[in-house]
Amino acid sequence: GLPPGWRKIHDAAGTYYWHVPSGSTQWQRPTW
């Protein structure tokens, strides 16, 4: 699974990851 606080988001551009507490997003899968 993903580290705490991360969500996987799907949209028209593809899949990305959202860090809910900080509001940051990234294309790379977050690592622990």
Rank of each mutant, 00 (worst) to 15 (best):
residue 1 G to E: 13
residue 1 G to R: 13
residue 1 G to S: 13
residue 1 G to P: 13
residue 1 G to I: 11
residue 2 L to V: 03
residue 2 L to T: 02
residue 2 L to I: 05
residue 2 L to K: 06
residue 2 L to G: 01
residue 2 L to D: 09
residue 2 L to W: 03
residue 2 L to S: 04
residue 3 P to T: 00
residue 3 P to K: 01
residue 3 P to A: 04
residue 4 P to S: 06
residue 4 P to N: 06
residue 4 P to M: 06
residue 4 P to H: 08
residue 4 P to I: 05
residue 4 P to E: 08
residue 4 P to F: 07
residue 4 P to T: 06
residue 4 P to Y: 06
residue 5 G to S: 03
residue 5 G to F: 04
residue 5 G to D: 05
residue 5 G to Q: 02
residue 5 G to L: 02
residue 5 G to T: 02
residue 5 G to K: 01
residue 6 W to K: 00
residue 6 W to N: 01
residue 6 W to P: 00
residue 6 W to T: 01
residue 6 W to S: 00
residue 6 W to Y: 01
residue 6 W to V: 00
residue 7 R to L: 14
residue 7 R to K: 11
residue 7 R to V: 15
residue 7 R to S: 08
residue 7 R to F: 11
residue 8 K to H: 09
residue 8 K to G: 04
residue 8 K to F: 11
residue 9 I to E: 04
residue 9 I to G: 04
residue 9 I to S: 03
residue 9 I to T: 03
residue 9 I to P: 01
residue 9 I to Y: 05
residue 10 H to P: 05
residue 10 H to R: 12
residue 10 H to I: 15
residue 10 H to F: 10
residue 10 H to L: 11
residue 10 H to A: 12
residue 11 D to I: 12
residue 11 D to Q: 07
residue 11 D to F: 09
residue 11 D to V: 11
residue 11 D to S: 15
residue 11 D to H: 10
residue 11 D to M: 09
residue 12 A to Y: 07
residue 12 A to I: 10
residue 12 A to H: 08
residue 12 A to F: 08
residue 13 A to R: 14
residue 13 A to M: 14
residue 13 A to E: 11
residue 13 A to H: 14
residue 13 A to I: 11
residue 14 G to F: 07
residue 14 G to A: 05
residue 14 G to N: 04
residue 14 G to E: 05
residue 14 G to K: 07
residue 15 T to S: 10
residue 15 T to F: 09
residue 15 T to N: 07
residue 15 T to R: 04
residue 15 T to D: 12
residue 15 T to W: 11
residue 15 T to M: 08
residue 16 Y to P: 00
residue 16 Y to M: 07
residue 16 Y to L: 08
residue 16 Y to F: 08
residue 16 Y to A: 03
residue 16 Y to S: 01
residue 17 Y to M: 00
residue 17 Y to N: 00
residue 17 Y to E: 00
residue 17 Y to I: 00
residue 17 Y to L: 02
residue 18 W to V: 15
residue 18 W to L: 15
residue 18 W to I: 15
residue 18 W to H: 10
residue 18 W to Y: 15
residue 18 W to M: 14
residue 18 W to S: 07
residue 18 W to G: 02
residue 19 H to L: 05
residue 19 H to Y: 04
residue 19 H to G: 00
residue 19 H to W: 04
residue 19 H to T: 01
residue 19 H to K: 04
residue 20 V to M: 11
residue 20 V to L: 09
residue 20 V to K: 07
residue 21 P to Q: 08
residue 21 P to L: 09
residue 21 P to E: 11
residue 21 P to G: 06
residue 21 P to H: 05
residue 21 P to N: 06
residue 22 S to N: 02
residue 22 S to Y: 04
residue 22 S to H: 03
residue 22 S to V: 02
residue 22 S to M: 02
residue 22 S to I: 02
residue 23 G to Y: 03
residue 23 G to H: 03
residue 23 G to L: 04
residue 23 G to R: 03
residue 23 G to M: 06
residue 23 G to A: 04
residue 23 G to P: 00
residue 23 G to I: 01
residue 23 G to T: 01
residue 23 G to W: 03
residue 23 G to F: 03
residue 24 S to M: 15
residue 24 S to E: 13
residue 24 S to I: 15
residue 24 S to N: 14
residue 25 T to P: 02
residue 25 T to H: 10
residue 25 T to K: 15
residue 25 T to D: 03
residue 25 T to F: 15
residue 25 T to Q: 08
residue 25 T to E: 06
residue 25 T to Y: 13
residue 25 T to W: 14
residue 26 Q to K: 05
residue 26 Q to D: 03
residue 26 Q to S: 12
residue 27 W to A: 12
residue 27 W to P: 08
residue 27 W to M: 13
residue 27 W to K: 14
residue 27 W to F: 12
residue 27 W to H: 10
residue 27 W to V: 13
residue 27 W to I: 14
residue 28 Q to S: 09
residue 28 Q to H: 13
residue 28 Q to F: 10
residue 29 R to G: 04
residue 29 R to F: 12
residue 29 R to L: 12
residue 29 R to E: 11
residue 29 R to P: 13
residue 29 R to D: 07
residue 29 R to V: 13
residue 29 R to I: 13
residue 30 P to E: 03
residue 30 P to W: 02
residue 30 P to Y: 04
residue 30 P to D: 02
residue 30 P to T: 02
residue 30 P to M: 00
residue 31 T to R: 08
residue 31 T to D: 11
residue 31 T to L: 12
residue 31 T to W: 08
residue 31 T to E: 13
residue 31 T to Y: 11
residue 32 W to S: 09
residue 32 W to V: 10
residue 32 W to Y: 10
residue 32 W to T: 10
residue 32 W to D: 10
